[in-house]
Structures are given as structure tokens and as C-alpha cells.
Computed example of a mutant assay.
Amino acid sequence: MKEDDPENRPKLRYFRYAVISFTALIVLSLGFSLIPADPPAPADPPFSEQARVAALQDSLDLRAAAGRLSASAEADGDANPTAADETVTLLTLQARALLSPADSSPEEDAPGSATPLPSGQSGPAAEAATTAEPTLAGLASALSASGVQRLTDAAKSDGGMARLLAGAGTAQLLAAEDLAAAAGVAQDTLPHAGTAAPPAAGALAPDATASSCPSPLPEPGDAGREPSAAGRSAVLGSALSAAVATEQQSLYAYQAALPRLGAGDAPAAEAFLGQHRELAAQAAAHSRAACSAPPAQPPGFVLDPGFLAAPRDGLARLEVAALPAYGDVIAQADGGLRSWAIAALQSATRRAAHWNGGVGPVPGLLLDQDQLPELPASPAPASAGT
């Protein structure tokens, strides 16, 4: 019989081996396909979110240190813990402005208990004030370092976050100087010493040079697309034109106030008038570089009825009202122009503070404190995880 032919047996044996091998290959391939692959590592959060988390963490740590300092002053019978109390208020409002719904809340006032910050955003500015018994001098230095970091991050963040960080950092620098004065420490020893000078006359940013302006007419088929370069330039040009108008009004107001100010206030007013003159020229140049014609200097402005009777208060109101104009430029600009606007915001804030104007917790940003989220029982950031 052919089935029993010895010559056929090796062929059948090879066929069985092939079938078994093929079956095993199918089983292995199915098994590998059913094993889930390792999930990809989460992407790093955007820089603006990392900067927000770092700012929030520093504000919470410094707030905790200021709170302990205030409590210690009261326990020791210090009748004037005002500097620490005002710092707690400032940092509380800043933390509320920086909160995100995704933030978690570990133990409040417990240094080191918060969710770790992203790599490179560990909040070193607050370490000195939270790892040891706080002092006014130590808190002033830590607050100054935090302000410097906020301003550095503002230069690289997205528009809205840049405005928030620039205002928060500016307020922290001024608060650090107040704490240093209360502690009897020279301000030139603070980390930000020498970094907050007003923009120099004619010091235009590298990107504020004359350039060909885009056509205001839309390109064919642009409907529904992202705003064109012309549209973005128009928004920035509008913000710069508003800054020019603000400086023109300030020039007029200071000239009207100078003859009516006391001898003690006149030198500062003269210096501030010079700053406004420089800023008006710089804002006009930036406006032209952004393809927007700056407004012409009007012959005069209508001042508040009580301005001439109380020029010091009038100048304070005027400087405070000018802050949002530079906040708008910070939000719309980038590069050297944003750096110029941040410096202009700082100088405007200092002028307002000189006249005892209330600049708020975030100069340059109009905040409705009643609309800010309340700090949870145990606040801390988490949305930019590790």
C-alpha cells in the first residue's frame, strides 16, 4: 500500500513539523499582540503652566512664612507687625489670582508638603524663608528673589500669563523693599537691586525698528483662519497707541501739577516728568514699528476737578490708571518690546507707590477680588505635575 511506503514517512513527518511550527507562531503572535504596550510618558506641560505653578508655590510658601512671622511678632508683644501682615494679604491675593481648578491642596502652611513642582521650577526663592525661622530680612530677600523669577518667566510666557506674572513680580519687588525698610536692611542688598531702573531715553528694543508693514487687506481664502499678521499687528498697535495717549496725558498733568506741589514733592515730580517724556517718545516709536500711527499730542486734557486742588492725589490716581495700558502691551508683545513694557510697568508702579496710590496685588491687571477663587483649606499646585 502506498500509505505504508517508507519513502512517504519523512514527508509526513516534515509536514507535521511545519503545521506545529506554524500553529506555535500564530499563538505567540496573538499573545504578543494582546500584551498592552507601556503607556507613553506624559508630555511636559507648557512653559506658561510651569511658570504659573512655580509662582503659586512660591506665593504659598512665602505667605506661610509671613504668617508665622506675624504670629511670632504678636506673641512677642510687637505692636507693629504691619509689614508681615501686609505681605500675607498681598500673597494671599496673588495666590488666589494664580489658582487653577486643577490645583490640589495638601496641608496648608506646611513647607515641603505640597506636590513637587516640575523640573527646573522648584521654587528656590522661598526656601530660605521656609526652611528656618523666618525674619523680616530673610523674607524680604526671598520675596525679592521670587519677584525677579516672576519677571524672568513673564518674558517667556504666553500673553495673558505674562501679564499676570509681570504684575505679580512687580508687586513682590515693592513689598520686598517695604520689608527691608521695616527690618532696617539696605535695599541695595536685595536680589533685585539695580534691575528695576526705568527704561532709558531712546532705548528701543532690537525688534522695534522700522519694517515693511503687512497689507491691511485680507488674503483670498483667509476667512475662518487664524488672525493674520496684519490683525495681530493691529491689536498690538492699538495697545501701543493707548500707551502713547496715556503718556501724553501724564505729561500734561505733571506740567500742570508742578507749580502747585510743595517743595518736598517738586524734585520727584520733575524726575517723573522726565520719565514720562522718555516713555512717550519710546511708545510712539514702538507704535510706528508696529505699523500703527501714534496719536498726535492734543493741545490739552480735561483733568479731574479736584486735581489742581490736591495735585499729589491727582497724580496718584493718574499713575494707577496708566498701569493697565502697559499690561495690555505686555500681553500683546513679545521679545524686546515685551521687556520694554515690563520695565515701563515697573517704573509706573513705583511712581504710583511714591504718590501713595493703591497699585493692587497685580499692577497692570484689573482684578475683581470678589471674583477670585478662594484658597482651599490646604492649597497647593498640581496641574503641572512631575
Rank of each mutant, 00 (worst) to 15 (best):
G360Q: 00
G306T: 00
G224L: 15
P40L: 14
A344T: 02
E133N: 09
P198G: 04
A380Q: 12
P45K: 06
A271Q: 14
I26N: 01
K2G: 10
S228E: 11
R277T: 10
A310T: 08
A132M: 14
A183W: 08
S113R: 10
A203T: 00
E49T: 11
L30Y: 02
P134R: 05
Q332S: 11
H192N: 10
S378T: 15
A66P: 12
A183V: 04
A95C: 11
A142K: 05
E107G: 09
G231L: 14
E86A: 05
G169F: 05
T189L: 04
L143I: 13
A331T: 06
L69G: 01
A333H: 02
L34K: 14
S122A: 14
L56M: 11
P42R: 11
L174T: 03
A322Y: 00
D370H: 12
G357Y: 00
L143Q: 12
S228Q: 14
A75W: 06
S70Y: 08
A126M: 08
A186R: 13
P267M: 10
L34T: 08
A181C: 14
A176N: 05
A43Q: 14
A132D: 12
S250L: 11
A223G: 09
S292C: 06
P42D: 09
V302D: 12
S212C: 05
A341Q: 03
A54N: 09
A269Y: 03
G112L: 01
P295F: 03
S144M: 10
F307R: 04
V362F: 04
Q50R: 15
S141C: 15
F307C: 02
S104E: 15
D58K: 08
E177S: 13
P363R: 04
G221Q: 00
L99W: 06
A271V: 11
S119A: 15
D328H: 13
L273R: 06
T130G: 02
P116H: 06
P40Y: 15
S141K: 15
A145I: 03
C291H: 05
A162G: 08
R317W: 06
A162L: 13
P101H: 11
D207Y: 00
D103G: 03
A75K: 11
T246S: 13
A325F: 11
D58E: 14
A137R: 08
G123D: 02
P376D: 07
A155S: 09
L372H: 02
Q255G: 07
N80S: 06
S250Q: 13
A142T: 05
A114Y: 15
I330G: 04
P118H: 04
P106H: 09
Q187I: 13
A180S: 05
R260V: 02
A263E: 15
